[in-house]
């Protein structure tokens, strides 16, 4: 998950350090001689293991291929079949549901937590506790989350039984909802930390002034907190978009093992790719078809990130 975190960059670029006159000094000139030798190993690996495979995926998506025999050109056929494949459509819908639904819930909860946390004692401890799931293996989280909702012996199920007397079959009837709530649980700590860091930069006197003027908590949030943390929220939204499309293990471990896939109803795009290639007892090895869905996924990431940056761009407020 670490990899997902600093994703903010994609699209923003890394800040150039003082280009200044550095290149004219002897130090700058000698450094330049080292530029290519220094980045060569990383660049070669990056080209071979990222750029090459991305291009190869696009190429393979126009073919029928099982990975062993020859590639059989079939133009756009893979994409046409995708559009009529209900498994793909449902997986894609789940991906979007996670992106929008889980995302909205996570951000709302993170803001609510921030507003409460910043005025309470023990905030650092609580924040650290809420962050922790983010660095735990998603497979583990999935096992624990699943056990809470097991029927009839799960922790929350027995608690529910004690209160209402009924024993719902959560994992059987509403598995995807349970997964979505679990995803909110895992991600909230991380986004709370980011948003809190943004809120902490806001000068306290703004709040003092507004309190003197009689602003309510909601008005303070709407007119001060939200506008002044907007750039942080925008970056966090990009991070969430990218990391939400990568979600795999947490869903997979609900019924998935080294051999089996979870039920099709909970698949997202990432699981779809795995399911139509290497996953399950009888792997499909539909490399061409799965590559087409991979290309769709890549395009969606790209478009969403660009759109998000467009929509959320605003004049930076100086304070």
């Amino acid at each position: 998950m670490a990899v997902a975190s600093a994703t903010a960059v994609a699209g923003r670029g890394v800040r150039r350090t003082k280009a200044s006159a550095a290149s004219l000094t002897p130090l700058g000139r000698r450094r330049r001689a080292l530029f290519w030798p220094f980045i060569a190993p990383a660049l070669v690996l990056y080209l071979v293991f990222f750029v090459g495979p991305v291009l190869a995926s696009v190429w393979v998506s126009f073919h029928r291929w099982d990975g062993v025999g020859d590639l059989e050109p079939r133009g756009l056929q893979n994409y046409e079949i995708l559009l009529g494949d209900s498994t793909f459509i449902d997986s894609f819908a789940n991906t979007m549901l996670i992106l929008v639904g889980v995302g909205a819930a996570t951000f709302a909860l993170s803001f609510a937590l921030t507003m409460v946390l910043r005025e309470m004692r023990g905030r650092k401890f609580v924040r650290a506790v809420l962050f922790f799931p983010y660095i735990v293996s998603p497979v583990v989280l999935s096992v624990l989350w699943g056990f809470l909702f097991r029927s009839p012996e799960g922790l929350l199920t027995t608690l529910w039984h004690g209160i209402t007397g009924s024993t719902p079959n959560w994992l059987g009837d509403n598995l995807f909802t349970v997964i979505c709530i679990g995803l909110v649980w895992v991600n909230t700590g991380f986004f709370t930390t980011i948003i809190m860091a943004g809120v902490d930069r806001i000068p306290a006197d703004l709040y003092e002034d507004s309190a003197l003027a009689g602003a309510t908590a909601w008005q303070r949030f709407w007119y001060i907190t939200l506008p002044l943390t907007w750039d942080v929220v925008a970056t966090a939204a990009v991070i969430w978009t990218i990391s939400s499309l990568k979600i795999f293990e947490f869903i997979y471990a609900f019924g998935g093992t080294t051999n089996d896939m979870p039920t099709v109803e909970v698949w997202n795009s990432a699981l779809f790719i795995y399911g139509s290639t290497f996953g399950g007892r009888n792997p499909q090895f539909q490399f061409g078809y799965a590559s087409a869905s991979a290309v769709v996924m890549l395009v969606v990431v790209g478009v969403l990130v660009v759109l998000l940056r467009r929509v959320m761009r605003r004049a930076q407020i100086q304070f």
Binding site: V9, F50, K246, S269, Y274, M297, V305
Partner: peptide, 8 residues
């Protein structure tokens, strides 16, 4: 960073 590993 933005490329999901499932894609490649």
């Amino acid at each position: 960073i933005g490329i999901p590993v499932q894609v490649i």
